[in-house]
Amino acid sequence: MTTLEKVEKQPEQNPTAVENSNVEAQMNTYLPRTDIVESEDAVNIWAEMPGLDSESVSITLEKNVLTLDGKFPLPVKPDGYTLRVGEFPVGNYHRTFRLSQEFDCGEIEAKMKDGVLCLILPRRKDLGPKKVTVMSE
């Protein structure tokens, strides 16, 4: 059994940031926790962005840098409620990944599943082993 501490006892949580009407300007940006899983024909990136739906996430690829940007949907404060205990902060998400040349960048798939952004980066098929025939003169 754990007890919930009142907001006043937790200076590090900074409840004013949540209560303030001008939240967007004050909202922190967090690095989403990420798992990267490698399979034979693709690499999967799973990034946790709780609270965000597919419309609040933007993914851009510039040269070989993949950028994930998540904007926490406003309002943060449920209508008519006052914050009593704040154990976790909410905010925006941002993270970049440098890709190698072996991915088919046009075929990247992205989906939001229960607050987790799931990206599939398929490997380029034209990089597979090639046989070179030796000709005789």
């Binding site: 926790r33 990267i36 490698e38 034979e40 999967n44 987790v116």
Partner: peptide
Amino acid sequence: VLEMGEKDSFLKREL
């Protein structure tokens, strides 16, 4: 863990 094949492996594990 989300869907993962038998031969798949973690390159980075933070979750």
